[in-house]
Design a protein around this nucleic acid. Structure first.
Length: 512
RNA sequence: CGGGGUGUGGCUCAGUUUGGUAGAGCGCUUGUCUGGGGGACAAGAGAUCGCAGGUUCAAAUCCUGUCACCCCGACCA
C-alpha cells in the first residue's frame, strides 16, 4: 500500500491532494489560490488540448487570441453578466511601482479606467466581433481561444477551483437563432464525446435551470460527471447567449433582407478542472490512474538484475523489446536524447509524443513500481534474468493491478495499442458502472434527503425548477440541480417539493 | 469573507505551556553489500524555525501585525 497517500475511505479530500502530490501534477504557488502545473500535470493538459483542438477544427472552428486585460466598462454592458462576475474580478489600477520614503514599493501611475483581468472573454470578444461583422456574409464567426482566466474565488482546490485557471473558450456568432442553438448543442456533444472517448468519463448531458445559468446566457447546457465520493462535477458548459451580448456590444449585420439584425452568439468552455475530474474519477488508493488516451507515458519498463552479467543480458533484452515496440530508429534517437537520472525515454507515438520510459535509475525495483504506479502509467513491464532465460516479460496493468507473463515476441506496437485501448475501455466501463449504480430515482423529498445523506450520487426526480425551491433544497441538503437531463425516460410526474405536475425530471447532487 | 486548525532542512513531524547553542524519521549524496512491490550498514550535505515589527542580556518559544495552506460555511468552471 502506498505510504504517502491517505486512503479514500479515511479522508477523500486529503487523498485527492496526496494523489496530486505523489503524481507530481501540481503545486501551490506563492500567491493565494493559484497553482503551478508541473510537467506531469501539464502533459495531461497538453493531451487534452491536442485532442479537443482537433475536434474543434473538425467542426469548423479556428483559434485566435484576445487580451488578458479588459476595460472595466466592458463588464458592465451586460447587466446579468456584470452581476455574475463582479464579485470575483481582479482589477488592475496602476501602471507602475515607485520607491516610497521608507524604501518599499508602492503602486503609482493610477489608470484613468481600471482594467479587469478577464474572468471570461465574452465582452472583449463581443467588442471585436462588432467591428468584424458587417454583413450576413461575415457569419458565422467560429473562434476558439486557449487562454488563462482569473476568478478570485473564496475557496480554492487544486485543479477543481483555482484563482487562475487554463481553459478554452469558444465564441461564435450566427445569423439565426436556430444556427446558434445548433452550435450550442453541437459543442456540448463534442465535449461529451471527448469526455467519454478520451477521458473515459461518462457524463450526463442536460440543460441548467435558470438559477444555475451562466450570467448573460439565454440557456446553459452542461456535461455533469460523477466523482468516486458521490459528488458531481460540472465538466463543461455550452451557452446559447441569444442576442444579449450582441445587443450590449452592437454585433449587428446587414441581413439578406437589407435590414440590420443583431447576431446570435454562443460560448462554450472546458478548463483544467478536467484534470481534477480525471483524478477523482479513476484514481485509487495507490495513486493516479490515467486513461491511456491522455497518459503522457503509456508504458514504463523496469529492469531487474543482480550481477553485472545479468544487467548486460537484461539490457540487451530490453533493447530488443524496445526495437520491437518503437523501431530501431527511435531506439537510436532515444539513446541520444537527454534524460535525467537514468531514465531512457522513447516515443511510442510521434503524433501524440506519448512515451515509453525505461527506468535505469539505481534504485530498487520496488521503488520503481511505486514510482510509476503513482504517476498513473497504464502499463509496466518488468524484465529480469529469469525472463531473459524464458524469453518472457512481466506485464502489470495499472487499471486493476493484475500481472501476466508474456513472450518477448508478443511485444509489438499493435499489441501495445491494443492493450491501451482495452484499458481505456475498462476505465470507461468501470466509471459508467459506478455512475449508473450511483444514480437513483426518488419519488419524494424525504426519500431524496435520505439518499443524499446516506449515499450521495445523482438523484433523479420530478422537480419544477424555481429559484426559491432550489435554494431551499440547497440549504437543507447541500444538493443543487446539476441539470435537466436530455434523456427523459420517466415521463411526467409530480414535483417532489410542490406537488405540481411536471413533465421533466432533474438530477440533483452535491457538487464540487 | 466568517468559524476552526497549521506553518520548523525536499517530505512528515517533535521542540513552544515554563525564552538559554536547531532535533528525529524519511528523502538526498558517496561507498559496500544488494536488487522479481517502498532493503542493510557506514560516512556526509542540507533549516537565520512562513514573513515583518516589538519585548528581552537572550526569541522557533512571549506580544502585535501580516501572508499562505488545510477543514467547515457563504461564492463559483
Amino acid at each position: 500500500m502506498a505510504r504517502n497517500i491517505k486512503p479514500r475511505s479515511e479522508d477523500y479530500a486529503q487523498w485527492y491532494l496526496d494523489v496530486i502530490k505523489a503524481g507530481e501534477l501540481a503545486d501551490h504557488s506563492p500567491v493565494r489560490g493559484c497553482m503551478v502545473i508541473r510537467p506531469e500535470g501539464f502533459a495531461v493538459w497538453e493531451a487534452i488540448q491536442k485532442d479537443l483542438d482537433a475536434r474543434f477544427k473538425e467542426t469548423g472552428h479556428v483559434n485566435a487570441y484576445f487580451p488578458l486585460l479588459i476595460p472595466q466598462s466592458f463588464l458592465t454592458k451586460e447587466a446579468q453578466h456584470v452581476e455574475g462576475f463582479a464579485m470575483e474580478c481582479a482589477i488592475v489600477t496602476h501602471s507602475k511601482l515607485e520607491k516610497s520614503g521608507d524604501g518599499t514599493l508602492r503602486p503609482a501611475g493610477a489608470l484613468e479606467e481600471p482594467l479587469i483581468v478577464r474572468p471570461t472573454s465574452e465582452t472583449v470578444i463581443g467588442h471585436m466581433y462588432s467591428q468584424w461583422v458587417q454583413s450576413y456574409r461575415d457569419l458565422p464567426v467560429l473562434i476558439n481561444q486557449w487562454a488563462n482566466v482569473m476568478r478570485w474565488e473564496m475557496r480554492t482546490r487544486l485543479f477543481l477551483r483555482t484563482s487562475e485557471f487554463l481553459w478554452q473558450e469558444g465564441h461564435t456568432a450566427h445569423e439565426t437563432a436556430e444556427e446558434a442553438q445548433e452550435e450550442t448543442l453541437r459543442m456540448l456533444d463534442v465535449y461529451a464525446s471527448f469526455a467519454e472517448e478520451s477521458l473515459a468519463l461518462p457524463v450526463v448531458k442536460g440543460r441548467k435551470t435558470p438559477f444555475e445559468r451562466f450570467p448573460g446566457a439565454e440557456e446553459t447546457y452542461t456535461i455533469e460527471g460523477l466523482m468516486q465520493d458521490g459528488k458531481a462535477l460540472q465538466c463543461g458548459t455550452s451557452h446559447n447567449l441569444g442576442q444579449n451580448f450582441s445587443r450590449a456590444f452592437d454585433i449587428d449585420y446587414l441581413g439578406r433582407d437589407n435590414k440590420q439584425h443583431l447576431a446570435w452568439t454562443t460560448s462554450w468552455g472546458v478548463s483544467t478542472r478536467l484534470i481534477g475530474a480525471l483524478i477523482m474519477a479513476h484514481s485509487d488508493d495507490e495513486g493516479l490512474v490515467l486513461p491511456p488516451k491522455v497518459a503522457p507515458i503509456v508504458l514504463s519498463v523496469i529492469p531487474i538484475f543482480r550481477k553485472d552479467e545479468d544487467k548486460a543480458q537484461v539490457a540487451a533484452a530490453i533493447d530488443a523489446l524496445m526495437s520491437q515496440l518503437v523501431g530501431e530508429g527511435e531506439v537510436a534517437a532515444g539513446e541520444k536524447r537527454l534524460s535525467p537520472g537514468g531514465l531512457k525515454t522513447y516515443f511510442f507515438d510521434k503524433s501524440t509524443h506519448q512515451k515509453i520510459v525505461v527506468d535505469w535509475r539505481s534504485v530498487r525495483p520496488g521503488d520503481k513500481q511505486y514510482h510509476w504506479e503513482q504517476r498513473g502509467v497504464p502499463f509496466r513491464i518488468e524484465v529480469g534474468p529469469r525472463d531473459v532465460e524464458k524469453q518472457t516479460f512481466v506485464l502489470k496493468r495499472r487499471v486493476d493491478r493484475e500481472k501476466e507473463f508474456l513472450p518477448f515476441a508478443a511485444a509489438t506496437p499493435d499489441w501495445l495499442r491494443g492493450i491501451l485501448d482495452v484499458a481505456q475501455a475498462e476505465l470507461l466501463t468501470r466509471a459508467r458502472t459506478f455512475r449508473d449504480g450511483s444514480t437513483r430515482r426518488v419519488k419524494s423529498y424525504d426519500e431524496m434527503k435520505e439518499v443524499l445523506k446516506e449515499e450521495g450520487g445523482f438523484v433523479r426526480c420530478h422537480f419544477k425548477p424555481d429559484r426559491a425551491r432550489e435554494q431551499q433544497v440547497k440549504d437543507e441538503t447541500k444538493a443543487t440541480v446539476r441539470c435537466i437531463p436530455f434523456e427523459q425516460e420517466a415521463g411526467g410526474g409530480k414535483c417532489i417539493l410542490s406537488g405540481e405536475d411536471c413533465d421533466e425530471e432533474v438530477i440533483f447532487a452535491q457538487a464540487y
